[in-house]
Simulated scan of single mutants.
Amino acid sequence: MVAIIGQFCVNVSDLERSVAFWENVIGIPVVSRTEIETAREAVLQSPHGGGRMQLAQQLAQTGPIDMGSAFWKLYVNTDDCAALFDKTVAAGCEVVVAPARLERWPVTVALVTDLDGYLLELIEYHQDTPAGVPDPKNV
């Protein structure tokens, strides 16, 4: 038996605002959209590989997204952590941790919260990208 994580779905408060952020700031395009009776949805995936993310605006939802305690953070691999960090902050993300090169691993990371409050870890590998993880520096 083989299992592969295909995509995950997160709720957003404003689908068009979230799509604009992920496409124009992060650089991951929408590959499909759908509307169902209860939600408007968009699926995003990099043309360079990796998983797919579905954004869903629940039509009955009002107010901010209830983060609860189940979701911790979403990793975004990049070839330039500092530049992507600057773009996210300019787009309105809240700074949690500015870009820093870690001593324990050969990476630079930064943490921001997006416009719905999701914690994003921006990560740039300097060597040894984990097996199976697309390396943005090789694109």
Rank of each mutant, 00 (worst) to 15 (best):
M1D: 06
M1L: 06
I4L: 06
Q7Y: 03
F8E: 03
C9H: 06
V10L: 15
V10E: 07
V10A: 09
V10F: 13
V12G: 10
S13P: 09
L15Y: 11
E16N: 15
S18M: 09
A20K: 11
F21L: 09
V25E: 03
I26F: 00
P29G: 03
S32A: 15
R33K: 15
T34Y: 12
T34K: 15
E35Y: 09
E37C: 08
T38C: 08
T38E: 11
T38N: 10
A39I: 06
E41W: 12
A42Y: 10
V43S: 10
S46T: 02
G50S: 03
G51H: 03
G51M: 04
Q54N: 13
L55I: 08
Q57Y: 09
Q58T: 11
L59D: 08
L59F: 08
L59E: 07
T62E: 14
T62Q: 13
G63E: 14
P64Y: 11
P64H: 12
M67Q: 15
G68Y: 13
F71E: 04
K73T: 03
L74F: 04
Y75C: 08
V76N: 00
V76Q: 01
N77G: 02
T78G: 03
D79F: 01
D80Q: 03
C81M: 04
A82E: 12
A83P: 02
A83N: 03
L84I: 02
K87M: 04
A90T: 02
G92C: 11
E94G: 09
V95R: 10
V95A: 11
V97S: 13
P99W: 11
P99D: 14
A100E: 14
R104T: 04
V107C: 02
T108V: 09
A110F: 03
A110C: 04
L111C: 06
V112R: 05
V112H: 06
V112P: 00
T113G: 09
T113H: 14
L115F: 09
L115D: 09
D116R: 10
D116M: 12
G117C: 12
Y118T: 12
Y118P: 08
L119I: 09
L119E: 09
L119V: 08
L120R: 05
L122G: 00
Q127S: 15
D128V: 06
T129L: 07
T129Y: 00
T129M: 07
T129I: 10
A131D: 08
A131H: 05
A131Y: 05
G132F: 05
G132A: 08
V133Y: 05
D135I: 05
P136L: 03
P136Y: 00
K137C: 07
N138L: 11
N138F: 08
